[in-house]
């Protein structure tokens, strides 16, 4: 994993290292980008992601973790991959789908 050695921005702690790897796998596959470019400080803009790429990545994460990811403040505000992974990783680990749907 490339941890972005020239930047102070780190990947978020998702509690489970495997979950981060799984999310990066999905970003690579659905975003159709070189894995070396998937760094925590990489911005969605510099990666050339368009909204459709983000949608495909989110779909991949939903299917992998069986969750629904609404566009909330954190996800909407994410500008780099660290923030993006933090936003989706939080949702992916926090709630099972049933708990999510049952409402809070």
């Amino acid at each position: 994993m490339n941890t972005g050695k020239e930047s102070t921005i780190k990947w978020p702690d998702l509690g489970d290292p495997e979950r981060l790897e799984q999310i990066i796998d999905i970003i690579e596959k659905e975003g159709k980008i070189d894995r070396d470019l998937i760094r925590p400080d990489a911005t969605l803009e510099t990666l050339g992601f368009e909204s459709i790429d983000v949608v495909l990545i989110l779909m991949g994460i939903e299917d992998k973790f069986d969750v629904y990811l609404p566009m909330d403040d954190d996800l909407a505000a994410a500008t780099n991959l660290a923030e993006f992974v933090a936003a989706v990783g939080e949702a992916a680990k926090a709630e099972s789908l049933d708990a999510q749907v049952a409402g809070k």
Partner: peptide
């Protein structure tokens, strides 16, 4: 609609912090 990611899974909260769709 799910795929457009504009739906909330629980409550519709217009103009509120924490709204999700």
């Amino acid at each position: 609609w799910e795929l457009l990611r504009v739906l909330t899974p629980d409550h519709c909260r217009p103009f509120s912090k924490g709204r999700r769709g």
